[in-house]
Design a protein around this nucleic acid. Structure first.
Lengths: 223, 223
DNA sequence: ATGGCCGGATACATCGGAGGTATCAGGGAG
DNA sequence: CTCCCTGATACCTCCGATGTATCCGGCCAT
C-alpha cells in the first residue's frame, strides 16, 4: 500500500478511535508528516483527499481541523459522486428516491408544525406565472427539502438532497418545461402540502409517490 | 479557489462533459499538469482525491485511468464516510435502512429466481451452531446483499451496502451476541427467505420491516 | 482608556527537480 | 515458439525553497 493511503487510514483511525474529535486541530503539516513517517507532499495528498469528502477542513494560515462530521456535511460528498452518473442510471436513482421520499413525507406529516407549513405555502405562492428553469429547480429543491427536514432524520434529509442534486434535477426540469407538465407538477406540490396540513400520513405518502412516479414515467418515455 | 480545487473541478468537468469516458487514460502527470497550468505536486493532490472516491484509478508504471463509474464503485466511497459516524447517528442510518430494505425485499420477491433462493438457503444452512461475530457479520451482509441485488436496482444495492457497512453491522452484532437475540434474528432471516419463495411481496416487506425494527428497538434500549 | 493600524510569527499553498520503483512491450536466447 | 531480459514509460516519494493567507500582539492616534 502506498504511504499516502496508509496516511489516509491512519488519520481516519485517529478520528474513528476518538483520538481526534470533531473540531480538533491536527498537528501542523511538518509535525504530522514526521509522526506518520512520510514527506509533507505525500501527507498533503492524504489531507487533500480527506478534505474533498469533508472529513478535514484546511484553512491557510491557520491550520487543519476535523470537521463537525455532521451527516449533512459528509453526505454532501455524495452529490459530487452522483454528478458523474449519466442518463442511464438516473432512473435507478429516481427509483430510490421514489422509495425514500414518500416515507419521509409520511413521517413529516406527524411532525411538521404550522409555521413550517405556512412557510411552504408562502414559498409555493411566491413562484411567478412564468418561472425560469433556475427558479423551478430552486423552488422544487426547497419544497422537498423543507418537507424532508420535518421528518426529523437528518441522514434521510442529506441522502435525498444528495441523490437528486441540482444537476440531476435541472436535467429533469429542463425537459419538463418543454411540455405542459409544469402546472401539473406544481399542482402535485400543493396536494402534498394539503395532505400534510390535514396530518393525513397516507394521503401525503401517496401524493409523494404519485409525484415522483409521474416524473419517472415522463423520464422513461423520453430516454 | 486553490489551484488543486480548480484541477479537481476541471477533471470532473472533462469526465461529466464526455471528453473523458470511463476507461479512458489521462495524459501523463507532467503533460496534464502543464495543460491545466499547475505543478505536478498539486496535480497529484487532485488526482489522489479523485482516486479516493473511485473516480480515477492510478496504476504505477502504467498510467491513470477513469474508472467504470459504476454506481456500485462510486457508492463504495459512502461506506468510508459512514465509518466516521458515531453511535448517536447510527439510529438515523438504521431508520433509513428500515425504509429501503423492506422496499428492496418486496421488489426482489417478484424478480428473484430459484437458483438465487437456493443459494440463500444453502448459505443460511452453512452457518454453524456457534458462529463467531465475524461469521455472523459476513453471513448477515451476504444474505441481505443477495436479496437486494435481486431487486434489480444496483444503486439501491450499493446504497444499502454502504449505509450499513461492516463497521456499523459489526458494532450491532457484537452487542447482539451478548443477548439471546441471535437465534431470533436468524429465524427472521428464514422467514424473509420463506416469503420470497412464496413470491409474497407483502409478507416479504413486513418480515424485512420487522427484522430491522427489532434491531432498532434493541439498539434504542442499549444506547 | 479605547479603538484601529501594522508588522511578525505561523501554517498552509505551490513549485521544480531528483531518485526510486512498478509495469509493459519488444528483442534475443534456448 | 516460448521464456527471460532489458529499456522505456509513468507513477511514487522525497527534499528544499518561496509565496500567501491568517492570527495576534504591540504601537499609535483619538
Amino acid at each position: 500500500m502506498a504511504v499516502t493511503d496508509e496516511a489516509i487510514e491512519k488519520i481516519k483511525g485517529m478520528i474513528v478511535s476518538g483520538a481526534l474529535r470533531p473540531g480538533d486541530r491536527l498537528p501542523k503539516e511538518s509535525e504530522l508528516a514526521a509522526e506518520l513517517g512520510l514527506s509533507r507532499n505525500s501527507l498533503r495528498e492524504a489531507v487533500r483527499a480527506l478534505s474533498l469528502i469533508r472529513i478535514l477542513d484546511v484553512r491557510q494560515g491557520d491550520g487543519t481541523y476535523v470537521t463537525s462530521l455532521d451527516p449533512q456535511l459528509l453526505l454532501e460528498a455524495l452529490s459530487f459522486v452522483v454528478d458523474f452518473h449519466r442518463d442511464d442510471t438516473v432512473l435507478e436513482f429516481l427509483a430510490v428516491r421514489r422509495i425514500l421520499e414518500p416515507a419521509a413525507t409520511a413521517m413529516a406529516s406527524a411532525l411538521i408544525d404550522d409555521d413550517q407549513l405556512d412557510a411552504l405555502s408562502a414559498q409555493l405562492d411566491a413562484l411567478g406565472p412564468a418561472p425560469s428553469v433556475e427558479e423551478l429547480v430552486a423552488c422544487d429543491l426547497e419544497f422537498h427539502r423543507g418537507i424532508v427536514q420535518a421528518s426529523g432524520n437528518s441522514v434521510l434529509c442529506s441522502l435525498l438532497d444528495g441523490l437528486s442534486g441540482p444537476t440531476t434535477r435541472a436535467r429533469v426540469w429542463r425537459g419538463l418545461t418543454q411540455e405542459d407538465a409544469v402546472s401539473r407538477t406544481l399542482h402535485e406540490h400543493r396536494m402534498i402540502l394539503g395532505s400534510l396540513r390535514d396530518r393525513d400520513a397516507e394521503a401525503a405518502r401517496s401524493w409523494a409517490t404519485v409525484h415522483i412516479a409521474s416524473v419517472e414515467q415522463w423520464l422513461r418515455t423520453t430516454l
